[in-house]
Write a protein that binds this DNA or RNA. Structure first.
Lengths: 205, 205, 205, 205
DNA sequence: CATGAATGAGTATTCATTCAT
DNA sequence: TATGAATGAATACTCATTCAT
């Protein structure tokens, strides 16, 4: 209705930061509910009303903190990105210290550790054309970390080669996460694949 | 294979079987439009009105052929399934005749060949929780064909082992299709991965 | 959701032109209802639901023809502008043929003739900042016609003088319309004022 | 005049009479903010949150002083009415002392003097169907004062005649205020009109 | 049979107002 | 008392689907 609104409050209409304990709890509950719902039904299919109901929040309160469905998604993605970043930093560290096979296993384990949040994140990334920026950032961050790891394992690879390998590792990472719930046999194969690829194409067989 | 064709025909027939050429053209135009739109925007975001407009069909007529948005999606998936099945039957045949490396390459090539339609199909499969049935069928069909191929390559594997390997091949198949447009380097890695996995885990090292 | 929409249908999302008799009737009913409601309650206070109810139209149908509350207002203003234009063209003609006093009376009569629609139009013009364009056009059209009339009555006036006189006549016109329902005495005063001003300041006393 | 002041105070007091300086400042800030916002955007478009933000008041505090949006508007109108009354009382006095032409000019000057506050007041009066009471009061007060002036100028007029003349003067008053910013030429015409009308129809030509 | 009109439940979002700390 | 959080009815608008011509 006017561009002046929110001048005083928040600059980009990011929704109010909670300033009381109660607000923080609310926000957490909302994010939890949203994550589960998005993961289960996809971005479009989830209604704000549903999110409100599941987090036992009045619709108006939901909108106080997340003034838009998109804002809610962005917050979720932001949170996800942070976690990813931490995990991957750890992984890159391990690449320097662990023997190859142990690293391969850890690699898969890290991928599995995500799985829950990942579902929601993936859905959000795919569904919202808007999220182009966020999406790119996430991908790039992930890839760079993996390239670091690759370089640590095999310093002889050129930057380009390392990047290509990182790309494939990224895919394996995704596969692992996507198949987290598919049973022992499936997992075993993925672990095998990870070792195989790391040994032959990364460490340089 | 012929049962499936009938199945597709029946799906469409939920509306009205187009007996004249005109009807066939309409249906084709509609499916084409729908495929493009779904691929570009996702299932939820596409409106029946849009599909009607893009295929230059009156909304009423669209509903004569596809009495439901879901029916439209099902028809599309059916068509897709047919194609997939043919491709994979060919692949299973090649598993028996081609040397392993050549087969690995062909495997990746087949995956790449899909990419275009795959976009729409994937979207539909992911988006519609309803589509459980179709989705399962597709997966299962794909997996069975791959298990056939695995068995052909290494008859010593138990049925369970073969299935687990097929599952992983399926993932590689998806990865290849998903990365169709990512450039030469990425492709080379995928080909390498396919060979590696087929040699070590399927052919049995 | 996409800019391509309506490509086939209407270019600016002006809503569907009715193509059947039924549609024309609908549109007319809607405009009638909207006009009355806007006049009575102001732009903001009127709900689309109200308009739909009063015109016995389903909300969806209302939106078929007027895809926006603003579009509805614009249509109303457009219609109003047309009428105004006709009235004023007639008035300009009379300025050339009628004696001054008769013209003065006719001037007031024309103003009164509007009154009903005017209420709605005025409200719309004032309330919607967006309508800047429309508003300007309306004002300018009105003023030009009046300047024509002034020039016809007293050709000796410079263009600037004529325009200033037209501006005042415009105000009197508005006053007359605004006071349409205020009783005989009020009317008499306005008629007197119109004569007075026309004789002294326009005809040149 | 003093009853009216009380009235205003009471209106505010529906909330809580601010007894300390701090409260007075708050209230003043709020009224200022509200006036500006209403004038710029119209009654409906302004949110209480906006008013709170612009006056740097917490929403809860705003509601302590003005328990309703309507109460806020009423307070504003009350303040406006006071000022109007003073102006007009002065005008009525001048009617007795000034020669006709000077009075005519003063009349227009008074109208122009309002223009700023008038914007908000007008908006409030037009927008709130509820405000019937206030609106009527304002109009009546204005009219009575003008009738006084008319009677002072021409004591021969009957009460009815005086009232009718006052009505027209009221319109001219409005016109003048509304056109405050339209330039010299426009102003000159209005002054001319005021003199004309006062001489011919009020003083009795 | 083709077409455009009709329908109405459902969606994101806003905002006046009340409560709890 | 001042402040931020909570509330939910109301609003503009969408879209799958059905009907009438």
């Amino acid at each position: 209705m006017s561009e002046q609104k929110n001048q005083v409050a928040e600059t980009i209409a990011e929704g109010a930061e909670p300033k009381r304990r109660r607000g923080h709890l609310r926000v957490a509950a909302i994010l939890e509910a949203a994550s589960a719902l998005f993961a289960a039904q996809g971005y479009d299919a989830v209604t704000m009303t549903e999110v409100a109901a599941r987090s036992r929040t009045a619709i108006g309160s939901l909108y106080r903190f997340f003034p838009t469905k998109d804002a809610l998604a962005d917050a979720l993605l932001g949170r996800f990105k942070e976690r990813v970043d931490e995990e991957l930093a750890a992984l890159a560290r391990e690449a320097r210290t662990l023997p190859l096979e142990a690293f391969a296993d850890s690699f898969v384990d890290h991928a599995l550790a995500w799985a829950p949040d990942r579902a929601a994140a993936l859905v959000l990334i795919e569904a919202r054309s808007v999220a182009g920026a966020q999406r790119g950032q996430l991908r790039a961050a992930l890839r760079n970390r993996l390239a670091e790891a690759v370089a640590a394992i095999n310093p002889k690879l050129s930057a380009q080669e390392a990047d290509a390998r990182a790309g494939l590792l990224q895919l394996i990472f995704k596969m692992a996460a996507a198949n987290a719930g598919e049973g022992e046999a499936a997992l075993r194969e993925i672990r095998a694949l990870a070792r195989l690829y790391l040994k032959e194409r990364v460490a340089g067989g």
